[in-house]
Design a protein around this nucleic acid. Sequence first.
DNA 1: GAGACTTCCTAA
DNA 2: TCAGTTAGGAAGTCTC
Length: 986
Amino acid sequence: MKDMSIVRMYGITEEGFSVLAHVHGFLPYFYVPAPNGFKEEHVQSFMTTLDAAIRRDSKRQEQAGRAVIDVRIVLKQSIFGYQGPDKTVFLQIFFHYAGQVAVARRLLEMGSVQFPGFGSITFPTFESSVGFPLRFMIDNNIQIPGASWVELKAQKYILRQNNATSHAQLEVDVDYKDIIAHEPEGDWSKIAPLRVLSFDIECAGRKGVFPDAKEDPVIQIANVVTIQGSDKPFIRNVFTLKQCAHIAGTHTLCFERETDLLAKWAEFIRICDPDIITGYNIQNFDFPYLLERAATLKVQRFPFLGRVRDLETKAKDSRFSSKALGTRDNKAINIEGRLQVDVLQIMQRDHKLRSYTLNSVSAHFLGEQKEDVHHSIIADLQNGNDETRRRLAIYCLKDAYLPQRLLDKLMCIINYIEMARVTGVPFNYLLTRGQQIKVISQLYRKAKQQGLLIPNMNPEGTDEQYEGATVIEPEKGYYDIPIATLDFTSLYPSIMMAHNLCYSTYIANPSVITKYGLTEDDYVQTPNNDIFLKASVQKGMLPIILEDLIGARKKAKADLKKETDPFKRAVLDGRQLALKISANSVYGFTGATVGKLPLLAISSSVTAYGREMIEKTKELVEAKYTIENGYEHDARVIYGDTDSVMVKFGPKEVAEAMRLGREAAAYVTQHFVKPINLDFEKVYWPYLLINKKRYAGLYWTNPVKHDKLDAKGIETVRRDSCQLVGNVIETCLHKILIDRDTAGAEAYVKNVIADLLQNKIDLSYLVISKGLGKTEYTGKQAHVELAERMRKRDAGSAPNVGDRVSYVIIKGTKDAAAYEKAEDPLYVLDNNIPIDTKYYLENQLANPLMRIFEPILGEKSSSLLAGDHVRTISVAAPTSMGGLMKFAVRTATCLGCKTPLPKDETAVCINCRPKMVDLYQKHLNNMTELEEKYSRLWTQCQRCQGSLHQDVICSAQDCPIFYMRKKAQKDLNDASKTMNRFAYEW
DNA sequence: GAGACTTCCTAA
DNA sequence: TCAGTTAGGAAGTCTC
């Protein structure tokens, strides 16, 4: 048994002791169909031939031993296509090492092995691409779900004492048969007391350059360690280079040499032995930086951060690319036995946000700004004294603690654990892999139970598309009567269940029908003309999986209702969410042509049924609810998308619309196969239908009070328009739909436009952000061009693929394209570059405003964008930079009448001299006002950083206060310069 | 300057 | 080796 494949299971006991279990005896394997005429007596020569071929192919020394351990003849069925009751003879081939699976698969699929008596056969392989750890978890009736409790049978495991290889507190050897997996139910649904370490590093970069690990030292590392489920950390410390003044409640460990700091930190990790390491962007910044820095300084034993003593931690480049999540370059870091939960990545995966900086994410979810120190100041703080380094350490600690607080607040660990349990995959797959693996895991598990095998499909880049859902042509306009919304609940899963759509029920070839003597009652032809077996003959696996998921969700929701304990409630809520997501992703999996097991017959039949259903729903409702049938109005379906219809029944009362909605939903449901269900969900009143996938309205679920203002697809919910537009549209909708004050909305818009043209709008509201989706672009785009320019300024801090790029549009030459006028907001701020307010009016505000006002005001709406407010004389924007402006000589104008003055130094022209005292008073008042404003903002920033006695060093790009403060500072400077001009007059 | 085309982001 | 789907609006650039 020795040196066979060993599965290392890492975990923690209920008491919180870390455990490493070396699980023995489980072998990697896969299947191939047995060649025709293959008998028991062929097994031996098959084994030795394949074994020799693998060993010839493997160059690695460690694979020199026997590769093929066993070959068994088994009777199984492929999941792909209905095969009646016929079982097929398969060979189950067991291997010594997991790595040999891929080699053997390639050899067999290519037909590169000559088998005596059979020749070079090309074999399709089955279940050959599932990773070994998942194979182990799926198999042998163990069926271990991810992140769940496992018991080792008493007396059956051996505790390692002198021969331990890890830093785990308990290390044991056990046979895989002596493992008991517990379903995460009842008592076994509790969450383990995992140790979570959250950390952040600071490095001293040089001015204007992003830190480089080859040059710039690591000066601080802050750590916060918390037991999952507890609300307070039990360790708070900070490792600092040079002395650092004491911080309350924090252990400061000061080092004179950077090598010591790094070595001690690595040791701290090993002793603290966390199950989860978290932080913000640790995977792509902190870890790679530390590893490279330690390598540069040759710190012995640093890169051993995992639980296995002699396994070196390394950073590898990897690229993740999917249609749904986009492309992203990542570093992969192996820290054996510890989960790396990078909060940045969680945010990017789970939440669509305008910006993903720790600051903006914290503001969004925790409602607080963090202290942000511009990297150019860090070195100064480090080179100061104990107190300045303490300042830095406090900042660093906060950055270490925030990720932990985000995890807690959003209950990420619990939700991910529940997702791992529901889908069966190990926790880390949820962070490193896509959606498909979750469906595959469930499919393999169900297939295993039913004796079905999953073929390894080789991707034959079929970029063929299939038809999706119907979007009913909207009857655009503003509706001041209630519009009822009817939705099919879980449409795609219920279609798959209702019509038994599955790989195993798919009849690709009509000959199958005759072969198994099927009658017309036994199968159905979908609207897409694909044939599937009915459930009465054999139920498909996907329908079973979906039923289980939906049944489990119902149970979780029922349990949630009864449960009072907040921890258990969080677990249950996480579970029901995971179950819902899982059910919905099954359809997508079958249509993923780049995927592991695409079957477009399923996905395109699903959408075809869906199209038929939404049409039928529209017809049924419009046919039944007519004046002719005794109703007061003829009902109209004014819009619908995929699984919903918006119905104008006619009545003016919300309650009546709800009654009709409920009735109609029940009526339509009768016309469909179980478990398809049309549900009345809500009423919109009033309802503004702008276009396909674009609408807004007040959302009512009870006739007494509206629940919310709901907006779909329009600027308020989009991340690629600036906040100014979002806020203006949001406010207008509020005024129009809730306050019913269209005139007020118009006045408001005019005000905003006037403010905009007078440069009174804060810069943070003008920032536009777009994702950098790829590395090569055919056309020019603002955010892409800017990212390129920023890369030239400082490669380290420039946006990378997958990042969001923030920019503002600045004034440029008359015909300059937008991509030439995009600039980094911070750069604009630092250099006082004027904003192209006209662009914001004409290219950002105009169209969205017209789209919402047009249906309400009609022709009149065009007056919004013309009139006095637009003609307001623009306040001279700063013109110190850019293009031709630097060649222009600026002449001062009279502060009274604005006529050019001969000399810069004076304040007023001859004609205005008599008014000078008044003018002076006016400017003095103005300056006093600005001073007060600046000081208020300053105090606010000081409060934010938790100290009123030190300079504000923050430069948080996402903080609106920061922009306002910068602007106020600038205005104050200008005002004070103006004041100085009066000095020459006296 | 109209229309094709690309890109982003959202709805479902 | 890895990657869930299609429909669709809107904005901006490119092309003729």
